[in-house]
């Protein structure tokens, strides 16, 4: 256990260096910009709209998170003694720490644009669970893409697919199971049980997909024709 902690510590700096900070930062920056709109334009929006503003900001962050598992060196790191779950956990932990700071900034920006009374109606804790679940969804999709294909950079595809599930949930879920409910709605508690369930489920999917498969995937680029990515240029 202690040895593993030592390895994790030693890997912390390289992990920080290898994370795609520009992409993560891009998503976060747009998120903060969206959250700051009510404050910048003095819009005086009601609590329900402010909650939606925070949700849109969370979705921006989740689009950035979709790139957190991108590893251009994936086909060479498959044989190192540090197992993939530990490497991915480290990445997620580092990105998560920075993400927590970002989310605090988002909530601060939303708060700056709200009157004290309106802000009291915005349940920040529950919205944090929603944001974490959206980022968890990005992680689960990226983890699954890594686990079940030979793709090195799952980010672009996952980011492209990411807006679809929330939009589908908003359009298709029946009223009783609505996810995007306004604060103060009688369904709020039920919806957030559901959100917590989604968070747990997505993290579980990611954790399950983090394990390196017993056999190396047959579709390694260069060896077969079916590889998703050909050529060696840096992608993204």
């Amino acid at each position: 256990m202690r040895r593993r902690a030592a390895v994790a510590l030693a890997l912390a700096r390289p992990t920080v260096r290898s994370l795609p900070w520009r992409l993560l930062g891009g998503g976060w920056a747009l998120g903060v910009a969206v959250a700051a709109v009510p404050a910048l334009f003095a819009l005086h929006l009601p609590a329900a709209v402010l909650a939606d503003v925070a949700r849109v900001a969370a979705l921006c962050g989740a689009v950035g998170t979709a790139f957190a598992l991108d590893d251009p060196a994936r086909h060479t790191t498959g044989t190192v003694p540090v197992p993939r779950p530990l490497r991915q956990t480290l990445r997620v932990a580092v990105a998560g720490l920075a993400g927590a700071l970002w989310w605090a900034a988002v909530l601060g920006a939303v708060r700056a644009g709200a009157d004290a009374g309106t802000w009291a109606g915005v349940p920040a804790g529950a919205l944090t669970v929603e944001a974490a679940a959206l980022s968890g969804l990005a992680l689960a999709l990226a983890g699954a893409a890594v686990r079940f294909s030979a793709v090195r950079l799952p980010g672009p595809a996952v980011a492209a697919a990411l807006p679809a599930p929330p939009v589908a949930a908003a359009v298709f879920l029946p009223d009783g199971y609505a996810l995007f409910v306004p604060p103060g709605d009688p369904r709020w508690a039920d919806a957030h049980t559901l959100w917590a369930g989604i968070l747990t489920a997505t993290l579980a999917v990611w954790a399950a997909c983090a394990l390196e498969p017993r056999h190396r995937s047959g579709r390694v680029p260069g060896r077969t024709r079916g590889g998703e990515e050909r050529g060696g240029a840096t992608a993204r």
Partner: peptide
């Protein structure tokens, strides 16, 4: 390919939130 999903989120924000 990171710009388009973010733009989609921005369109959602402009159309449905603000």
């Amino acid at each position: 390919s990171f710009a388009a999903p973010l733009a989609a989120v921005a369109v959602i924000a402009v159309s449905f939130v603000f």
